[in-house]
Every structure is written in C-alpha cells, then in structure tokens.
C-alpha cells in the first residue's frame, strides 16, 4: 500500500534582496505531525515535488511547546506558531509563508528585534535597586496576581503585530504586545512608581494612539492574553496622565 502523502507549499527567499519563489514538497503523512516535523522532513530530503534538489528551509523554532515564541509564521494565511499547527487540522495543500510585518531574513525567518527594542523604549522592567539581599518584595493582592499573570505569559511571537492593520512599514506602532507589557509593569507595586516613564513613551510616535481598535490582536494571540483589555486600560492610563500633566503644566 502506498503511503498517504500531502503537499506543503513554501514561500522561499534566499536573501532579503533576492526574488521570491514558491516550492512544493510532497511529504509522507504520519499521525500527529505538526508543521515543524514537515520542515524537518524537508531538511532530510530537500527535493521538491518535481524532484529538483533544493536546500533545507530556514525557519525559527526552539521550545516546540508554544512557550518560547520563536516559530511564528503564516500557515494557510493565519499568523500562528508552527509547533501547535497540526497537519491533521490544516487544509491541504499547506501553505507556509514568513510573517510580513517584520524584515525578512531568509525563507520563514524574520527579524523581530523591533519588539525587543520597543520593550526597551517603553521601560518594560521593574527598576530594582540591586540583586543583593534586601529582603522581601512588596506584598501583592492575589487579585492583582491573577490579572498580571496572564499578561506576563506573552511570548513576543509577533502574531498580534502581524494581524494589526496599523503595524506596517508606514506606521511605527509598537503593537498590542508591548502595550500589554506596559500595563503589566504599571500594575506591579514597584513598577507603578515609574508608570509615568512608560506612559510618556506611549505618547510618542508609534505609541498607543496608533491603535485603531480593529481588535485583531486578541484573536491572533496564541496565549489568549486579553490584549484589547490591555489596550483600553493603557489608553485610559495615558489619557489620565496626559490630562494631569497638562493641568499641572508639566
């Protein structure tokens, strides 16, 4: 009996300045395959469907349990993590493309350093005095922890930026993930002492005002983070901060 097979179509680009080509691979089906396994199969036999020798596909992946954020790509047009994209659930042929909102590196690899830079600009950290032993941290109500924990699960995958109509080459919008992190740090007792720096940063170009409430982000988030809630909450915080500073003449 012949093995069951299926087709994977991959958008490939050797370098950012080289032309795009689509390649088709015919892979042997096994139960519980995910897209990562497909890409490994191709690496082991990098011959296209028509028998032409190609190269293994470049892609980012690390933890393979949807907690590191590395393997985001467009799978059948949907921005998602490749590790949780099961072949059984996908329409065939499976179409793989790199995320479009980040500079392309090669094949399915893009450069998401913008997100890490934006975390820097928005001061997404708790400014501690030092790592020496100066006793316990501030007390925190369990209800605050229950709100904060889901936000702190953001894996910086970039799917929320990919689907946002306001994140593109024309607009420097930081995107929902970063705004949600600002909310997280403003929530923490120590972080709250420095919320003004973060809110100020979000008033600059690319800041919170760029959100136009298409609410795609929350639907694309693999971790179910309440991103639209974060956007609204931080919108309110920035506004109150802006009005207060204005009234005080700061």
């Amino acid at each position: 009996m012949a093995d069951k097979t299926f087709i994977v179509r991959i958008k490939r680009q050797q370098r950012p300045d080289e032309s795009v080509r689509w390649e088709e691979y015919e892979l042997r089906y096994r139960p519980h395959m995910n897209v990562i396994i497909c890409l490994r199969d191709i690496a082991e036999k990098p011959f296209t469907r028509s028998g032409v020798e190609s190269t293994p596909v470049s892609y980012d992946a690390n933890c393979l349990e949807e907690v590191c954020g590395a393997c985001a790509m467009l799978i059948n047009g949907t921005a998602r993590q490749a590790c949780t994209a099961l072949v059984d659930d996908l329409e065939k042929p499976i179409r793989l493309e790199p995320l479009t909102k980040f500079p392309l590196v090669r094949d399915l690899v893009v450069d998401r350093s913008k997100m890490f830079e934006d975390l820097k600009r928005t001061h997404c950290w708790i400014p501690i005095d030092g790592t020496y032993d100066i006793g316990e941290g501030p007390r925190m109500a369990p209800s605050v922890q229950e709100k904060g924990y889901p936000l702190s699960r953001c894996i910086t995958c970039g799917n929320c930026l990919e689907v946002c109509p306001k994140v593109n080459q024309r607009d420097p919008f930081v995107g929902a993930a970063i705004v949600s992190q600002v909310r997280l740090f403003n929530m923490h007792p120590t972080g709250a002492m420095h919320s003004a720096e973060r809110l100020e940063a979000l008033m600059l170009p690319g800041g919170i005002a760029d959100c136009d409430n298409a609410q795609n982000c929350v639907k694309a988030c693999p971790k179910g983070i309440p991103l639209t809630e974060s956007l609204a909450a931080v919108n309110g915080q920035v506004l109150v901060h802006a009005v207060k500073s204005w009234l005080r003449g700061e």
């Binding site: 689907v163 109509p165 607009d171 760029d210 409430n213 609410q215 694309a220």
Partner: peptide
C-alpha cells in the same frame, strides 16, 4: 491621514471587528 497609515487586511483576517475597522 490616519487611514493612510493603516493597511487593511480584512480579506486575510476576516474577523467581524476587522471588517468594522
């Protein structure tokens, strides 16, 4: 001007709120 800064994608991500956008 704001519109010009955005890039609609409701065809590839056809969620209701995206169509509203």
């Amino acid at each position: 001007y704001i519109w010009s800064r955005g890039k609609s994608n409701a065809l590839s991500h056809p969620w209701m709120s995206n169509w509203m956008y």
